[in-house]
Simulated assay, not measured.
Amino acid sequence: MEKKKTGISYVFQLAKDERKKLHLGMFLSVISAALSLVPYPVLF
């Protein structure tokens, strides 16, 4: 019996045709989270 994949490996299995878009989305999500930590006055 095959062991069920879970977590990120399962997501990559589902999105095997769209890996570049998935990686881009993950990268942009990390950038967005990092920028949300920067206080607004610092940006202006």
Results as ranks from 00 to 15, higher is better:
residue 1 M to Q: 07
residue 1 M to T: 14
residue 1 M to Y: 15
residue 2 E to V: 05
residue 2 E to N: 15
residue 3 K to L: 14
residue 3 K to P: 08
residue 3 K to S: 15
residue 4 K to M: 10
residue 5 K to C: 07
residue 5 K to Q: 14
residue 5 K to T: 09
residue 5 K to E: 13
residue 6 T to W: 04
residue 6 T to E: 08
residue 6 T to F: 05
residue 7 G to A: 05
residue 7 G to L: 06
residue 7 G to E: 02
residue 7 G to I: 01
residue 7 G to M: 04
residue 7 G to S: 07
residue 7 G to T: 01
residue 8 I to G: 06
residue 8 I to D: 10
residue 9 S to L: 15
residue 10 Y to M: 11
residue 10 Y to K: 14
residue 10 Y to P: 00
residue 10 Y to N: 10
residue 10 Y to R: 10
residue 11 V to Y: 12
residue 11 V to W: 08
residue 11 V to D: 06
residue 11 V to E: 10
residue 11 V to I: 11
residue 11 V to K: 06
residue 12 F to C: 02
residue 12 F to P: 00
residue 12 F to R: 11
residue 12 F to S: 03
residue 13 Q to P: 00
residue 14 L to S: 00
residue 14 L to D: 01
residue 14 L to P: 00
residue 15 A to V: 07
residue 15 A to D: 05
residue 16 K to E: 10
residue 16 K to D: 11
residue 16 K to T: 02
residue 17 D to A: 13
residue 17 D to Y: 07
residue 17 D to T: 08
residue 18 E to L: 10
residue 19 R to K: 14
residue 19 R to C: 04
residue 19 R to A: 02
residue 21 K to Y: 07
residue 21 K to I: 13
residue 21 K to D: 09
residue 21 K to M: 05
residue 21 K to W: 06
residue 21 K to F: 04
residue 22 L to E: 00
residue 22 L to I: 10
residue 22 L to H: 01
residue 22 L to N: 00
residue 22 L to C: 02
residue 23 H to W: 12
residue 23 H to Y: 15
residue 23 H to N: 14
residue 23 H to V: 14
residue 23 H to T: 11
residue 23 H to D: 09
residue 24 L to F: 07
residue 24 L to M: 11
residue 24 L to K: 12
residue 25 G to L: 03
residue 25 G to F: 10
residue 25 G to T: 00
residue 26 M to F: 15
residue 26 M to R: 05
residue 27 F to I: 10
residue 27 F to K: 06
residue 27 F to G: 02
residue 27 F to M: 03
residue 27 F to Q: 03
residue 28 L to I: 08
residue 28 L to N: 04
residue 29 S to I: 01
residue 29 S to V: 00
residue 29 S to Y: 09
residue 29 S to P: 00
residue 29 S to G: 15
residue 29 S to W: 05
residue 30 V to C: 08
residue 30 V to Y: 06
residue 30 V to T: 02
residue 30 V to M: 10
residue 31 I to M: 05
residue 31 I to A: 02
residue 32 S to L: 08
residue 32 S to F: 12
residue 32 S to G: 14
residue 32 S to E: 07
residue 33 A to S: 12
residue 33 A to T: 05
residue 33 A to Q: 04
residue 33 A to R: 05
residue 33 A to C: 08
residue 33 A to N: 03
residue 34 A to M: 12
residue 34 A to H: 00
residue 35 L to T: 12
residue 35 L to Q: 08
residue 35 L to W: 04
residue 35 L to P: 00
residue 36 S to Q: 08
residue 36 S to V: 03
residue 36 S to L: 05
residue 36 S to M: 10
residue 36 S to R: 12
residue 37 L to I: 01
residue 37 L to W: 08
residue 37 L to N: 09
residue 37 L to R: 03
residue 37 L to C: 05
residue 38 V to H: 01
residue 39 P to C: 03
residue 39 P to G: 02
residue 40 Y to M: 12
residue 40 Y to R: 15
residue 40 Y to V: 13
residue 40 Y to P: 11
residue 41 P to M: 09
residue 41 P to A: 03
residue 41 P to C: 00
residue 41 P to Q: 01
residue 41 P to D: 02
residue 42 V to I: 13
residue 43 L to V: 08
residue 43 L to N: 03
residue 43 L to H: 07
residue 43 L to G: 06
residue 44 F to H: 10
